[in-house]
Design a protein around this nucleic acid. Sequence first.
DNA 1: ATCACATACCTTGTCATACAAGTTAGTTGG
DNA 2: CCAACTAACTTGTATGACAAGGTATGTGAT
Lengths: 110, 110
Amino acid sequence: MNDRTQLLKGTLEGCILQVIRGEEAYGYEISEKLRMAGFPTVSEGTIYPLLLRLEKNGLLTATYRDSPYGPRRKYYRLTELGELALKDFYRQWRELVSCVDRLFAGNEGE
Amino acid sequence: MNDRTQLLKGTLEGCILQVIRGEEAYGYEISEKLRMAGFPTVSEGTIYPLLLRLEKNGLLTATYRDSPYGPRRKYYRLTELGELALKDFYRQWRELVSCVDRLFAGNEGE
DNA sequence: ATCACATACCTTGTCATACAAGTTAGTTGG
DNA sequence: CCAACTAACTTGTATGACAAGGTATGTGAT
């Protein structure tokens, strides 16, 4: 009925910002890292539009670089605005988690 | 840019099931309880369609009862299917939380 | 050379769902 | 009578995840 895709809404954007935060990364790499973090496979139809949107909104900047293994890669870096958005996301995320926890407190084991 | 509404996607459904789980409740009451749990005010344009959808999908059953204070209330109860869906939601929710936590582990304080 | 496969990026169209704004109704109190 | 609260519902809009498909480059096997 309701698959995980609805749960991901909004979360993914923040998680991608977090992945890029440490060091610049390109799309294909980001989806690998998310998979390694345990996320269900993130579709390319999800990730590329999202990256373009973040770039357009000024949270990311991009530069193309050649790859030794295939076509050139588009590396993304966080802007100042991106850092702020990331902090903001994490704050809101923690708040949501604590609300849900409060609601489910007492009957986890059932 | 991205307000909390996107973060709520999918989460709300499970939380409403959880509110109803303990004892039957009606829409207006549910939105109050969510607010008390710390959720940002949940719009009526959100909650009533959601309840109708859950009813239509067989996760909830409803009975009307008179109210001493206003128009009659529509009380919802969880079905077997609803209980299963709730368990399923919580499992997926915990999984998502642990993925995000894994990603952000190490630099919470910044 | 050719074919399969992995890498790498992008586009189009579809679906689910949260919300704003508005509608209809009942009750209570000034 | 009117305002305020309770209570449910409808319509229209925007967002964002995804499936499916397209383009292109490099590597290794046949």
